[in-house]
Simulated scan of single mutants.
Amino acid sequence: MKKILVALLLFSGIVNAQNESTISDKKNEFRIDVLSAILSSKISVSYERFFSNDFSVGLNVNYSDSKKLTEDFEEGYTNNIAKYEVNPYLRYALSKGKTNYYFAEIFTSFNGGDFKEIIREENAGTAVYTTKISSYSDIAAGGSLGYKMYFKESIALELLVGFGYNLLNTDKSPDKITRVGINLGYRF
């Protein structure tokens, strides 16, 4: 009877020790931004790789083909419409918790879409105004702040707010790039 009791105590100690260290052993995370999907019909997915308790790197990819944004673009409410973004980032944990913490992030955004402008053309002495649509691509740099928490050491909920500025093609691209999201993910 004593041997069974000792075996059960050892087994429960091993199980508890494994449960406490599992989040540190999981180095990969995949997330989907539910806020962007609901508000702007944008598909936004992220992958993050953890190197230590403080640092991680990741890649976020966005694609948008929203009917509402396209209508606003076509009706002249905006002169550019973002179609895609690819955002590599580096994160640093500002607090020391493993299952919930604040973080700071720096990112680069490779983004592109369509640009619309009204141009004046002269044809045999008559001026005609036409709408010209062209594509743009640009690179932005920026920063974000966020909060992440885990449920059952695998399910992630992340809140993120940040912005950056486009640097190269500013006559056609939007001035600012935003990174705002409520992400749900899985750490493995």
Rank of each mutant, 00 (worst) to 15 (best):
N28S: 13
E29A: 10
F30Y: 09
R31I: 00
V34H: 00
S36C: 03
S36Y: 03
A37M: 14
A37W: 07
L39Q: 08
S41A: 13
I43H: 05
V45H: 02
V45L: 15
V45Q: 05
S46V: 06
Y47I: 10
E48G: 04
F51Q: 07
F51P: 06
S52F: 08
S52W: 07
N53D: 15
F55M: 10
F55D: 05
S56K: 06
V57I: 14
V57Y: 10
G58T: 07
L59S: 08
V61Y: 12
N62W: 06
N62S: 10
N62E: 15
N62H: 10
Y63F: 15
S64L: 04
D65H: 09
S66H: 06
S66K: 04
K67Q: 12
K67I: 11
L69H: 05
T70A: 11
D72C: 03
D72Y: 11
F73H: 03
E74C: 01
E75I: 12
G76H: 03
T78Y: 04
N79S: 14
N79R: 09
I81E: 05
Y84A: 10
Y84I: 09
V86L: 15
V86S: 09
N87A: 10
P88E: 08
Y89H: 14
R91W: 00
R91G: 07
Y92Q: 02
A93I: 00
L94W: 02
K96C: 01
K96G: 07
G97Q: 04
G97C: 06
K98V: 01
Y101K: 06
Y102F: 15
Y102W: 14
F103P: 04
A104T: 06
F107N: 07
T108I: 12
S109A: 15
F110S: 05
N111L: 13
N111Y: 02
G112F: 05
G112H: 04
D114V: 01
F115S: 08
F115M: 05
E117D: 13
I118N: 12
I118Q: 09
I118P: 00
I118K: 10
E121Q: 12
E122M: 11
E122L: 08
N123F: 13
K132Q: 10
K132S: 11
I133Y: 03
A140K: 01
A140W: 00
A141E: 01
